[in-house]
Amino acid sequence: MTVPPFISRLPLIQAPMAGVQDWRLAAAVCNAGALGSLPAGMLAPAQLAEQLDQLQQATPRPYNVNFFCHTIPAAIPDRERDWAELLAPYYREVGADPATIPTGASRKPFDEDSASVIEQFRPAVVSFHYGLPAPELLDRIKATGASILSSATTIDEALWLQQHGADAVIAQGLEAGGHRGHFLSDDLTLQQGTFSLLPQIAEAVSVPVIAAGGIATPSGVRAALTLGATAVQIGTAYLLAPEATTRSVHREWLASARARHTALTTLFSGRPARGMVNRLMEELGYFPAQTPDFPLAGNANGPLRAAAEAAGNGDFSPLWAGQFAAACRSAPATEITRWLATGCSGPN
């Protein structure tokens, strides 16, 4: 298969990680020869433009901008009240003020304002989570010349993405940190591990396939390329880099034995996402029935997490990480990228 235009010099992509990075990590990875990514799902248009301006000043190389494609749910007051009541004892414990719980959606889907920013900056790659935007919006992005990537967690999703205009498919295995990218079905029994999903998607589609999920070492990169990946997307391995904005509590947990235990949960956003197991997950369960729909569940979690983290407590935080979080290195992003790149050719 011909090397696609979104591959810079190395078949490595830094996964976009909302909440733990900004343009600095993306620029460092780009300058190391891989494809850096900027998460835009939690940025207003003006914030996104500012981030992209900084990124373009910091690197002349291609980069990726990532967006969500979810539908914002209508608020259900009774459900949000029940959710706040479930968290109330923890609020009292850490001294958080329930009056500070925000309203509205903290994560916005790709829209016309997002498209206008992309048309202004014209990144080489635009990627999506939870499917693809409406055809008219996707056409606007394609008109800029950007390559379109999106996450698939099943073969059916990969085929759908290919049919609806994706230039490449990210095969997101169950081991991946952060939010699952599923969009055709909420049935988690359909989800597969990376090295099971990857070769099946590679056989099913004719577009390039990018492996993602639980890959954090050169040997993992090598294995993914051997199984048919055109490139490998890696996120968790960068969480301890100084260029990341990973919070201190999150860094402490990643550097400890607690990084060995991760699980999927809807507790922190309303949608299944993988993070290190903490007290809130253990005491309330991983999928409590009271959780509001994505992304509204995060509203009541915000003040609780902030108050706890101020005291050095990560028991109420979304500590996103993949299943191989124990492989995280506290090193500059350039060094991490070059280390991972040793898996792009012969054995170590």
Rank of each mutant, 00 (worst) to 15 (best):
V209E: 10
Q192V: 09
I201G: 14
V207W: 01
I170S: 12
H164F: 07
H164V: 11
F195K: 01
V169S: 00
I210W: 13
T194L: 10
E157D: 03
L174K: 11
I170G: 12
G181N: 00
L159H: 11
A204T: 06
P199L: 07
S185R: 00
V207C: 15
L198K: 08
L198R: 03
G214W: 03
T189P: 11
I210Q: 11
I201E: 06
W160S: 07
A176P: 08
A166G: 04
G181Y: 10
D167F: 02
V169H: 05
I201N: 08
D187K: 05
S196Y: 07
P199N: 04
L184P: 07
H179C: 13
G165Y: 01
A166K: 04
H182T: 03
L174E: 14
S196F: 04
G178K: 08
R180E: 14
G177S: 14
A176D: 08
L197G: 09
I170Q: 02
G193N: 15
S196L: 14
L197M: 10
I201M: 12
D167L: 03
A202N: 13
V169Q: 07
H179Y: 12
Q172P: 09
R180W: 12
V209C: 13
I210D: 11
A168H: 06
A166Q: 00
A158W: 02
A171S: 15
A176S: 15
L188N: 04
V209R: 12
G181Q: 13
G173F: 15
V205W: 00
G178C: 05
E157N: 07
G214Q: 04
S206K: 15
F183I: 03
L190T: 14
D187V: 04
G214V: 10
P199R: 09
A171K: 10
D187H: 14
A204K: 03
L188P: 04
T189Q: 08
A204Y: 09
G193C: 12
I210T: 14
V209M: 13
S185M: 00
A202V: 12
I170E: 11
V207K: 01
G214S: 08
L197R: 03
V205E: 03
Q200R: 15
A158K: 05
P199Q: 07
T189I: 06
A168C: 14
E175K: 10
A166E: 02
L188E: 13
I210K: 15
G165D: 01
A158M: 06
S185L: 09
D167M: 09
I201T: 10
V209T: 09
